[in-house]
């Protein structure tokens, strides 16, 4: 799944975050976007996921304009992992992961349970599936966000500062899972990173500079 962003403008009220920004990601590529403080990395990923509207520009996911895609199509193609929050506090961890699948796909319950269990065991969160959201720490929140994305099996995975707070060993393990996922499925990964994060799996690293996305 490719991502093509060109002539991209994004801002909120008086604050302009991106002006004429562009980035190109081919199918199966893993790309990191190194971000600083409040420079718009999260908003950029959310725009790519169709969550935040942008003012101007072209944003094509696999050649389709994200603004023209019906919700079911966006769901099947793109998944966004929140850096913080991202879960509904009324539901347990399991329901947070299962509900999007139940909502969009006609999978039977047994299939959903197996798929969630498989991903949860990979990410080592199987023992917190029945927890409430308020019982999770920041790293667990990010892992649950990732699990929810992986069970959907998206073609474009957008991960926001996923590595924050992880130990080096855990970081390498999670990155290896992501690399394997992209290799096996041909999915693309765009991951924002911050100081101290690993870029070891990335084929290219970009950074945000003067409201544009430039190659590091």
């Amino acid at each position: 799944m490719s991502l093509h962003v060109a002539n991209f403008y994004l801002g909120f009220d008086e604050l302009s975050l991106f002006e004429d920004a562009a980035i190109e990601i081919a199918a199966g590529e893993i790309v990191c976007l190194a971000t600083g403080v409040l420079d718009g990395g999260t908003s950029f990923l959310k725009a790519c996921a169709g969550i935040v509207p942008f003012q101007r520009g072209t944003l094509l996911v696999d050649g389709d304009d994200i603004n023209q895609l019906p919700p079911e199509q966006i769901f099947r193609k793109v998944a966004y992992c929140y850096e913080s929050g991202g879960l509904v506090s009324l539901f347990t961890v399991y329901n947070n992961i299962a509900l999007p699948l139940k909502y969009h796909r006609n999978f039977d319950n047994e299939f959903i349970v197996k798929r969630i269990q498989f991903v949860a065991e990979q990410l080592e969160i199987a023992d917190i599936l029945e927890y409430d959201v308020h019982q999770l720490n920041d790293v667990q929140l990010r892992l649950v966000n990732l699990a929810r994305a992986l069970v959907i099996r998206p073609r474009l995975l957008l991960a926001d500062e996923l590595q924050s707070g992880m130990s080096p060993a855990m970081r390498e393990k999670i990155l290896a899972i992501l690399k394997r996922y992209c290799n096996e499925t041909g999915a693309s990964l765009l991951m924002t990173t911050t100081a101290g994060d690993s870029h070891s799996i990335a084929e290219r690293v970009y950074r945000i500079e003067n409201k544009k996305i430039v190659l590091e």
């Binding site: 959310k46 969550i51 919700p71 079911e72 929050g85 991202g86 879960l87 509904v88 506090s89 009324l90």
Partner: peptide, 25 residues
Amino acid sequence: AELGHLKLYNEFEVLKAQQMSPIFI
């Protein structure tokens, strides 16, 4: 209070990010 809390902490957006309708849920 419950739905106000969900709104305050952007949890409606979470559903929208999953392309789910918060009105329906």
